[in-house]
């Protein structure tokens, strides 16, 4: 946005405005170019993000069942309903559990894959592509494969076939929440889908670590392997790790597809977005309470992001590292 202000100063004096300007100046005008390039994006952002957010806030103060243009003002009733709703509060716990599993698991797996692929002497491009490919698969398609072929509860499901070799009985992975095997299904599908992408980020970061550091360490007597990894590689990956963890948390907040497709009509394992979907778009059609939940969730995300930025130093200057 700073571009606009600087260019604003550079505008021609009022007296000159009336004079016909050649088209060249228009093309060269940074202000024009600024709006030309950001305009379409900005319009999209206003129509598809800001208007819905505003509308949502407005809806949250109305009794809006089966309509998005309500007329009955109810004050904070919807907020009271959503904050006393056990399902909504449980969904926040579900999200926390999910994030506790998926963020460290993806971080470790993608870093591990990056280290392995980076050490390869041949077929590096092949393996890099193989691990990256799942990123292109849709969450819905992957969830259905996990549900119907890998983790179905009958004897010919892949997981149950493998367990069968060891004489273990068939397990109902998704239908039976006790023990909560459904977490295994949900976490593995996301792990498979997203690890490849973060692996690429780590490979790029690994290739940026100067070789001299390793040489110097080796001269100083550091043993290759764990010692160099712990004291050179890992600290050098700090910036990338921070970014990866932030991105993983954001992605976990947005989790919807696999939960919706894998758990269906359960009352457990419902993250906030699924809960709000049920409230607003599902059987209840209660857009007021759903919007109130969305506003509460947005505020929570803002607070968490700010805290995280403070703790992890994201966005701070290089010198403060």
């Amino acid at each position: 946005m700073s571009t606009t202000t600087t260019r604003g100063v550079a505008q021609p004096a009022p007296a000159k405005v009336s004079r016909p300007r050649p088209r060249r100046s228009l093309r060269a005008s940074s202000t024009f170019n600024f709006w030309l390039f950001t305009g379409p994006f900005l319009i999209g952002l206003i129509i598809f993000v800001f208007v819905p957010i505003g509308w949502s806030i407005w809806l949250s103060f109305f009794e809006a069942r089966f309509t998005v243009t309500p007329s009955e003002f109810v004050g904070f009733d919807n907020y009271q309903q959503i904050l006393t709703d056990a399902n909504f509060r449980n969904s926040l716990v579900t999200f926390t559990v999910f994030a506790a599993f998926i963020v460290p698991a993806t971080w470790a797996l993608s870093l591990g894959l990056a280290l392995l692929v980076n050490r390869l002497r041949f077929m590096r491009a092949f393996f890099r592509s193989v691990f990256f490919l799942p990123t292109a698969v849709s969450y819905v398609a992957a969830a259905l494969i996990w549900k119907m072929s890998l983790f179905n509860g009958v004897r010919f499901g892949l997981a149950n076939t493998v367990l069968g070799w060891f004489g273990v009985d068939n397990i109902a992975w998704l239908a039976n929440p006790d023990p909560p095997w459904y977490w295994l299904v949900i976490v593995t599908v996301r792990l498979w889908l997203q690890s490849g992408f973060y692996m690429i980020l780590f490979i790029a970061a690994l290739q940026n670590i100067p070789r001299e550091l390793y040489e110097a360490a080796s001269i100083d007597g550091a043993k290759p392997g764990w010692q160099t990894f712990r004291h050179i590689t890992l600290p050098q990956l700090r910036a990338t790790s921070t970014a990866v963890i932030l991105l993983l948390l954001v992605a976990a907040y947005q989790a919807f597809d696999e939960f919706f497709n894998l758990l269906g009509k359960a009352t457990w394992g419902q993250p906030p977005l699924v809960e709000l979907y049920k409230m607003a778009l599902g059987q209840n059609q209660n857009y007021g309470a759903g919007s109130a939940g969305a506003v509460v969730l947005t505020l929570l995300i803002c607070v968490v992001t700010l805290l995280q930025g403070k703790i992890m130093g994201f966005g701070r200057g290089e010198e403060s590292k």
């Binding site: 016909p20 300007r21 050649p22 088209r23 228009l26 005008s29 202000t31 024009f32 709006w35 030309l36 305009g39 379409p40 319009i43 129509i47």
Partner: peptide
């Protein structure tokens, strides 16, 4: 022909926004 036109920035913006919308 258009190169002689007296382009007003607001008009351009308006037209662009209109088109995009």
């Amino acid at each position: 022909a258009s190169s002689n036109m007296n382009w007003d920035r607001r008009n351009v913006l308006r037209a662009a926004m209109g088109l995009a919308a």
